[in-house]
């Protein structure tokens, strides 16, 4: 008998005669009001820098951020107009990473990033700009998950800059991941 069989047998023996607990339903999500103001407020509370911009406005923001930098690392899903005039760099070398989010969640101030967009650009550069379309903003995490049709190999939920209070309980940003998270919600 292998470990798997022995473990499963022990689990079954342990549960013999044990009452089966019911699985509760998910709660009803609250009426979806406009989640954008809440998203922007929560992101700011989480230490991110949120903006509500037109695509052109976001492109101007990106160019401003990239000014004086040797180049930018792009996620696969970032549309061409955002890349124009900028020097693409590998994420290991780029001081700025730009990602295209799958969706955002207002109640937690969260951006969902797919591995299909490329993981390194989301994690290695010290500054991270995330673009998300207004229509892809959900009021709650449950609503976002209920709408999710397929899962990528890895889904990263980012709710602010990398931080730690492990050294003497003092909050430090940018410990391993990006220390600066800038978000542009595209109108």
């Amino acid at each position: 008998m292998d470990a798997r069989t022995r473990i499963l047998n022990r689990v079954r023996r342990a549960l013999e005669g044990r009452p089966k607990a019911l699985l509760p339903e998910h709660p009803h999500s609250p009426f979806p009001e406009d989640p954008i103001p809440l998203l922007l407020a929560r992101l700011a509370e989480n230490g991110a820098e949120p903006h509500l911009l037109s695509p052109e406005g976001a492109q101007a923001l990106l160019r401003e951020l990239a000014q004086g930098l040797p180049g930018v690392a792009f996620g696969q899903g970032v549309p061409t107009p955002f890349r124009e005039g900028l020097n693409p760099l590998p994420p290991e070398e780029a001081p700025l990473g730009v990602s295209w989010a799958l969706f955002a969640v207002a109640e937690t101030g969260t951006l969902a990033l797919s591995s299909a967009d490329g993981r390194r650009a989301q994690l290695l550069p010290p500054t991270h700009l995330v673009l998300v379309e207004r229509e892809r903003v959900y009021p709650t995490l449950l609503q976002a998950f209920q709408d999710l049709k397929e899962l990528p190999s890895a889904l990263g939920l980012h709710s602010g800059p990398s931080k730690s209070a492990d050294i003497g309980q003092v909050m430090v940003k940018g410990v391993h991941g990006p220390g600066r998270l800038i978000v542009a919600v595209l109108t």
Partner: peptide, 21 residues
């Protein structure tokens, strides 16, 4: 005391074709 931890990884498996990971 956070609303969500800063990073959550939801992992479904190894990198798919053409992906990093």
């Amino acid at each position: 005391g956070q609303r969500l931890s800063t990073f959550v990884s939801l992992i479904q498996g190894p990198a798919r074709k053409g992906e990093e990971g």
